[in-house]
């Protein structure tokens, strides 16, 4: 178990390193950073000074190692636009994105697991078919468009929730739904498939033979086993959601890391973009690691070897 965990940890570190290399090289594709940093109207002398100051005249590999060393210490450089440390910017915006991501995955799980269980209890019933049909429809709706439609309907016409911004919890309702619904069909289908398989298992018959109440058979004996693969999927989906927050936060002008990423891209503020790519990747890697641990914890066959 420990061996497995250490191996996964090493892999995670290697993945993070590779992503850092990729996101660093983005900066180079972006053109001369000194010119960008100096801003408009800078003289050649200014640019030259910045180039030496930031070490942009050194060999690429050296710069990467320098950047990596700083990044490991939490220093991702200075924003071209704000002229403040990148890490401060991200630290300020990340909580909003985290809240959005967590509430979206909670929304998705709370919606899709009960639906998946119910669909599996009566496979091919009317309910099952409707749930399946809705999930097919749901998967075909582009989220940015869905977001706009929700804004028109619930914020503009019905005035139930605010249109945009991130000042109160009401501002998170629509973004949560839009970000969450996209993960719902996948989680629902996996829950349904898992439940269908588990409900055929001998130990379910044993539980029924013991006279355990039908609801408890379903949720204690069946769901507990069917949910194990769902955990991994949910973790992966949460990772994708945080990445997808770029679109959703832009639509709702939700002032989080995704919105910051979008604005930084528009402003060619590449130190910020670079850092965000790396951080989103790291979060994804950590989430999958967490999912593996959760799986091991949920499945005694792995936990108690």
């Amino acid at each position: 178990m420990l061996h497995f965990f250490l191996k996964r940890l090493a892999l995670a570190a290697l993945v993070a390193l590779t992503v850092s290399l990729i996101s660093f090289s983005l900066l180079f594709l972006a053109g001369d950073p000194a010119i960008a940093l100096a801003g408009e109207g800078a003289t050649d002398a200014d640019i030259h000074a910045i180039r030496t100051q930031y070490g942009f005249d050194r060999p690429v590999m050296e710069q990467y190692l320098f950047w990596l060393k700083n990044a490991l210490a939490g220093d991702f450089g200075t924003s071209y636009y704000f002229k403040t440390p990148v890490i401060n910017l991200i630290a300020e915006k990340m909580p909003t994105t985290m809240i959005l991501g967590l509430s979206a995955i909670s929304f998705a799980i709370l919606l899709s697991i009960p639906l998946g269980v119910l669909a599996a209890v009566k496979p091919n019933s009317l309910f099952d078919r409707i749930a399946l049909f809705i999930s097919v429809i749901g998967q075909a709706i582009p989220s940015f468009w869905f977001g706009l439609i929700l804004i028109v309907t619930f914020a503009v016409k019905l005035r139930w929730v605010p249109v945009s911004g991130s000042d109160s919890w009401q501002h998170f309702i629509l973004p949560t739904i839009v970000l969450g619904y996209y993960a719902t069909p996948a989680i629902m289908r996996l829950t349904r498939a898992g439940m269908l398989e588990v409900l055929r298992a001998d130990y379910i018959r044993t539980a029924r033979a013991k006279g355990i109440r039908p609801g408890k058979v379903l949720f204690k004996h069946a769901l507990r086993n069917a949910v194990i693969p769902v955990v991994g999927l949910a973790a992966v989906q949460l990772g994708f959601m945080l990445g997808g927050s770029v679109i959703i936060e832009s639509i709702f002008a939700l002032n989080g890391a995704g919105f910051l990423a979008f604005e930084s891209i528009s402003r060619n503020d590449f130190p910020v973009v670079q850092a965000l790519i790396l951080i989103f990747s790291l979060i994804y890697v950590l989430l999958t690691l967490l999912a593996d641990l959760l799986n091991a914890w949920l499945d005694p066959r792995i936990r108690v070897a």
Binding site: D202, Y203, R205, A209, K210, G211, R224, L298, D299
Partner: peptide, 24 residues
């Protein structure tokens, strides 16, 4: 039925390897 099963009538199955819930 579930009130009677396990209480007044019980059953032993033929597959001991798969008849117990692995999660508990």
């Amino acid at each position: 039925m579930s009130a009677i099963r396990g209480n007044d009538m019980a059953m032993i199955f033929q597959e001991p390897m798969t008849s117990l819930n692995p999660a508990y």
